[in-house]
């Protein structure tokens, strides 16, 4: 595989390449036709900054005109591990490609950065994480926090460093609708995308249950850390960096993790602002 890629590269198979850096970690991706290049530009995280492809630490190849069985996204610097294989690079494939590309970025960035399956906002100079699996009402709560003046860090994938600092990774909120999802920018909630790094000071794990009242319990540090581990965006990454990942989870847990069932998101949002206002963190 490696030789073939190298050969093709030298004979001009690639139509272009893009380098970018995400909070200090550099990536490069090459592609084999112009349409694929447009897809790459759309799936690169919005918080990324342009970088030099050739000196990037982690490189990928996107092949979309390779013919039967050859198309896909490959992680070159991990021995060309397939990230996603596909027949045709269409709209549906692009959505999946974006998801898988984020998995790969999470894997590559560890342990300098940790990606969590969480919503996140900045309230003043304080970061708040909203943990939760699919269907837990994470996006609704993030939307409510934005309405009250928080800035959007992320709706779904929080990026943090080992010291617990939260980095912006803004993308439109994926709001559930009757027939799927609608994507809504922070401005639709009267907010903006965060552009600064803030320390996480509060973590909320709220699970929606119709009619429930929000009476959160502070999780013990081990249980809280366990909750963080259960929300790693790309869980297999722990295998490569177990010590660092456990340390990170323990550190986040010490900042304060509150969990419980919630009814209306407004109640939790009010509690979050009140808790921060009382000097938590």
């Amino acid at each position: 595989m490696h030789e073939a890629f190298q050969h093709d590269f030298e004979t001009g198979r690639w139509s272009g390449r893009i380098g970018f850096a995400l909070h200090g970690v550099s990536f490069g991706i090459r592609f084999d036709d112009a349409a694929a290049g447009e897809v790459v530009r759309r799936i690169v995280p919005r918080a990324a900054l342009p970088s030099d492809y050739l000196s990037s630490e982690h490189r990928f190849s996107l092949i979309s005109a390779g013919g039967d069985g050859a198309n896909g996204l490959f992680f070159d610097t991990r021995d060309f591990e397939p990230v996603l294989k596909f027949d045709r690079l269409d709209g549906g494939t692009e959505k999946g490609l974006e998801t898988k590309f984020q998995f790969a970025l999470a894997l590559a960035a560890a342990p300098r950065l940790f990606f969590l399956h969480a919503g996140a906002v900045a309230i003043g100079n304080i970061g708040v994480l909203v943990l939760g699996r699919t269907g837990s009402g994470k996006t609704t709560l993030v939307g409510e926090l934005l309405r009250r003046g928080a800035d959007l860090c992320t709706d779904d994938c929080a990026i943090l460093d080992p010291a617990g600092n939260l980095y912006p990774n803004p993308a439109p909120l994926a709001v559930r609708t009757g027939d799927g999802r609608a994507f809504r920018g922070p401005e639709e909630f009267g907010s903006i995308a965060a552009s600064r790094v803030v320390p996480v000071a509060l973590v909320v794990a709220a699970r929606y249950e119709h009619g429930a009242a929000w009476a959160p319990e502070a999780e013990a540090s081990g249980g809280g850390a366990f909750n963080v581990l259960g929300n790693l965006f790309y869980p297999p990454a722990i295998r490569e960096f177990p010590r660092e990942t456990l340390g990170f989870a323990g550190l986040i847990a010490k900042r304060g993790i509150y969990s419980g069932t919630r009814g209306e998101a407004t109640e939790v949002a009010e509690w979050i602002f009140g808790t921060i206002g009382r000097g938590h963190g």
Binding site: P82, L84, G96, T99, A104, L107, D156, Y234, I238
Partner: peptide, 29 residues
């Protein structure tokens, strides 16, 4: 308490936020 992690390669894992669906965005292809 126990938490199990997947050994799987990138290609066989998918996004928790798309659990239960065959939506193209789940990353399975």
């Amino acid at each position: 308490a126990m938490l199990s992690f997947p050994n799987g390669a990138l290609a066989v894992t998918c996004a928790a936020s798309y659990c239960g669906t065959n939506d193209p965005g789940n990353g399975c292809g």
